[in-house]
Write a protein that binds this DNA or RNA. Structure first.
Lengths: 205, 205
DNA sequence: CTATTTACATACATTCTTGTTTGTATATAA
DNA sequence: TTATATACAAACAAGAATGTATGTAAATAG
């Protein structure tokens, strides 16, 4: 049988994306060939080229599968005024992200690929720009929340909300990198929650 | 003329490393070929293969040219008891590193290559391990200095020296990443000194 | 002064990848 | 029911890129 129903085809598409993630992770994006990915997915290159124009498109599909949902989550956790105070909401946002990495293999693998198995040149340079503008958004949001915390008198004096926000952003960027690069030796994955707690404790009044 | 004097040969070697850095930066490590590098250096692949067995060795040479001196600098700035108090020494270490990036193109390019133009798979996985163990060393050293600061009563209460050290390390890892990825839009390179100041201000008693 | 390295350049063989083209069985539309 | 579009597989052509082998002129050792 050759021609599949639409649902079958969509399944094939998803299996190709899964395969791409595995192959990217194991061999790096550059060294991964369409053939590797096809084999891993149990199809031929014909199928891969049918669903994706080239490796870059496939990479983008893999990326969006993980990052689009994550962006949505952010706004909810961070900005929606809930029961918790602003500083606790930031803390939950950070440790929530870590929790997703802990629990979701797909997300974890995608992060690892994007951080240490991908070269941001040529077509991929745009991806980096997207990531950066995404970061700017996060910093802005966190700044907002720090401002609310300051307004409520919860924020320690000394730095401006924007400065606290940048410091937090740097911290979390670094944490994510260490988390992803984690080897069996260093137990950062166990410590992450505690590190976030410590970080936030520093800015409570 | 073909055969060069030993000094000439060494110059050729250095020019090849320079060329490799430029090509790696422009095309990413994976997409850079020995031919690209040779052309950029004004020699043929023969010369490149004479000096380096393969691209990985060339990459390592480029890396060590920048990182070996940097490691030396760290111990001096950080550990040698000078006129400054421990917390200020940490601050100087951090902003000193940023200053090197500011002033030295070679260092800046090498950092950029290693952070966003290299895939850490196969042979390069070891490089990542080296980098990580290097990081562990830095964290240990910074912890030591925070302990001295605590002993002198300069360190704010709340976190342990180890926790402060980890937080600082995350912060600086993140800062370096943002610094390197800096686009024309965001002015992190101007802010870096101030961000470091803010970060350290948070831990002074 | 001669023999031997050295420091490359040039040429060659082989392997990988890619993109495209063609073929084809079957859903699906009309 | 038939025509067409779909979802692939299989085959093809062409260009990179690598590593190695060979050539060679000059530096250096003895």
């Amino acid at each position: 049988m050759v021609r599949k129903t639409k649902e079958d085809a969509e399944l094939t598409r998803l299996r190709i994306i899964d395969a791409a993630r595995e192959v990217f992770l194991a061999r790096g994006v550059s060294r991964s060939t369409m053939e590797h990915i096809a084999t891993q997915a149990g199809v031929t290159r014909g199928a891969v080229y049918w669903h994706f124009e080239n490796k870059t498109e496939l990479f983008q599909a893999m990326r969006e599968q993980v990052f689009l949902p994550l962006i949505d989550r952010m706004d909810d956790t961070l900005l929606v005024e809930g029961s918790a105070d602003p500083l606790t909401r930031i803390e939950h946002f950070l440790s929530g992200t870590i929790q997703v990495l802990d629990e979701c293999i797909t997300t974890r693998q995608t992060y690892e690929i994007m951080m240490i198995k991908c070269e941001y040149v040529d077509e991929f340079a745009e991806v980096l720009q997207k990531l950066l503008s995404n970061c700017s958004g996060i910093v802005e949001n966190i700044t907002l929340v720090y401002e609310r915390a300051a307004a409520k008198g919860l924020l320690r004096d000394g730095l401006t909300p924007a400065e606290y926000s940048m410091d937090t952003h740097m911290f979390f960027t670094g944490l994510l990198h260490m988390w992803v690069k984690e080897t069996d030796g260093s137990p950062i994955r166990q410590q992450a929650r505690q590190l976030i707690k410590s970080h936030m404790a520093l800015r409570r009044k």
